[in-house]
Design a protein around this nucleic acid. Structure first.
Length: 449
RNA sequence: UGACCCAUGGUGUAAUGGUAGCACUACUGAUUUUGGUUCAGUCAGUUAAGGUUCGAAUCCUUAUGGGUCAACCA
């Protein structure tokens, strides 16, 4: 109203197409609207009618009168209000006009006495209009400051693009653990501390950027390493029989061992770990003909079982197809963890679970959502570059203490990665999300050779 | 054929006109009952050309490269 009365705003009857045609181009001036010089009284009356719903959607707009030849296209008489017969939760159906973003922006900031209104770089040209409106409206002078948005490689951060991923079912929901949304990251197991640390490290500036997702993962691992409870879970098991352990049937027993919950946190305590004649280890922790520097199990070689004993591989049992079905090992009784008097030094330590009470769990392994670093800058649609293998569901066999897992717990599955319980879990079936893997020096070593 | 924004190692980000630094990554090595962690170290940078200045990443000019702008979207 103030602008109309000042003779700075007018009601325009042009259609959207007509207005676009008269707007000109970045290199050519636009033309004045036929309705630009309406009398103040007439404008007030028409605007009143727009508001009260006497016109159909799209028939009229309220525009501000600046300069149709302005070098900044946003200053060529931009629209302030358009008619929309939309139901509003406060005004119901009585109020039929809605402001454009540029018109509302400065006033919202001003009403709240915002001194620094920050936004992304594409709004730089809008600042001129923002300032112009504040000046003419004579309201509190908020100021807009622009910075570059933060991008992360192998994903998209645009809300509009993320919306497509949800709507078109490329992911299950906004909180799908592959989504770079707060709810997605949270469900995936990211801690708030790690996200804040990441934000501090990447800083803020005006230049285009794509931050390496590796930095986010570094912040995450650094925090998780300090707080995550250690557990042992075997994913692709092979059975190991401790040949010199007395079988249960012959009076042998299950020994209860102790293991620290977190070696980085002295106050985190210990937990019980059953150990007996038959255990499971990771299939790729054994090789019949190992390369150099393979510090795991191999015929005749010794390794330590974490928090348990040192074992020596004596014999490999294969099935009819030649696949390894069992590995027979002897254990060194004097090498018990914490009471080792054997003086044997081994290079490798393996995680394991006791076969008799292993708990089967489902594990969801996530990978990057896109195959390329910057999906939006590639040819064609960004969705053409979605990684089809971003979710892999696998089985795991966990030590019995896993049954006490709560939704808020963070775990490190030894030598594997960080995991958390997913909300899809039931009492019968525990489901874990892989938050992030551990740094893996060995695969790198293998690739070199 | 216009206007505006931006340009520092592979990545991200610092440096009243005064020694180009920090972090991640990569690579070496040490430690390790997680090939994790930790510790020590190495490689690597001011887009280019002029100008101003005792002195330029910083100021000026031009060039080059990248981004943005023609919704009744936000």
């Amino acid at each position: 109203m103030k602008l109309i009365k000042k003779g700075l705003a007018y009601v325009d009857d042009s259609s959207s197409e007509e207005m676009a045609a008269m707007k000109g181009t970045p290199t050519g001036a636009g033309k004045n609207s036929l309705y630009r010089n309406r009398a103040v009284e007439e404008n007030l009356e028409l605007f009143q009618k727009m508001k009260s719903g006497e016109f159909a959607d799209g028939t009229h707009t309220l525009r501000v009168k600046i300069d149709m030849a302005h070098i900044n296209m946003l200053m060529r008489d931009p629209v302030l209000y358009r008619i929309k017969h939309a139901h509003h939760h406060r005004t119901g159906d009585k109020w039929c006009i809605y402001p454009m973003y540029d018109f509302a922006h400065g006033q919202c900031d001003s009403i709240e006495n915002i001194t620094h209104s920050i936004c992304t770089l594409e709004f730089v040209p809008h600042r001129e209009l923002y300032d112009w409106l504040i000046e003419k409206l004579e309201i509190f002078p908020s100021h807009q400051y622009e910075f570059a948005r933060r991008n992360i490689n192998y994903t998209v951060t645009s809300k509009r693009k993320l919306l497509q991923l949800v709507n078109e079912n490329y992911v299950t929901s906004w909180d799908d653990p592959r989504m770079p949304t707060i709810s997605g990251l949270r469900r995936r197991g990211y801690t708030p501390e790690s996200i804040r640390d990441f934000c501090d490290r990447i800083g803020i500036a005006k230049r285009e950027n794509i931050v390496d997702v590796g930095l986010l993962e570094f912040c995450l691992r650094e925090h998780l390493n300090k707080i995550a409870q250690r557990r042992m879970v075997v994913f692709d098991p092979v059975r190991v029989v401790i040949s010199n352990w007395v079988p249960l049937q012959a009076g042998g027993k299950t020994e209860i061992l102790q293991s620290e919950n977190n070696p980085e946190d002295a106050g985190s305590g210990m937990r019980d770990l059953p150990f007996s004649r038959e255990i499971m280890i990771e299939r790729d922790d054994f090789m019949e003909t190992p390369p150099k520097k393979f510090f795991r199990l191999a015929p005749g070689q010794m390794v330590r079982l974490k928090s348990a004993y040192i074992i020596k591989c004596e014999q490999v049992i294969k099935d009819a197809d030649g696949n390894i079905s069992e590995i027979h090992c002897s254990y060194i009784p004097e090498s018990k963890s914490g009471h080792d008097t054997s003086e044997i030094k081994v290079k490798g330590t393996l995680h394991w679970v006791n076969a008799a009470d292993a708990v089967e769990v489902e594990v969801r392994e996530y990978d990057r959502l896109f195959k390329v670093e910057d999906p939006s800058s590639e040819e064609g649609d960004f969705k053409d570059y979605i990684n089809p293998d971003s979710l892999k569901v696998v089985k795991g066999f966990a030590e019995p203490s896993i049954k006490n897992a709560k939704l808020s717990d963070r775990f490190q599955f030894l030598r594997k990665g960080y995991y958390c319980l997913d909300k899809d879990s039931t009492d019968e079936k525990l489901i874990f999300n892989r938050t992030v893997t551990l740094k893996d020096g060995w695969t790198k070593e293998v690739k070199k050779n």
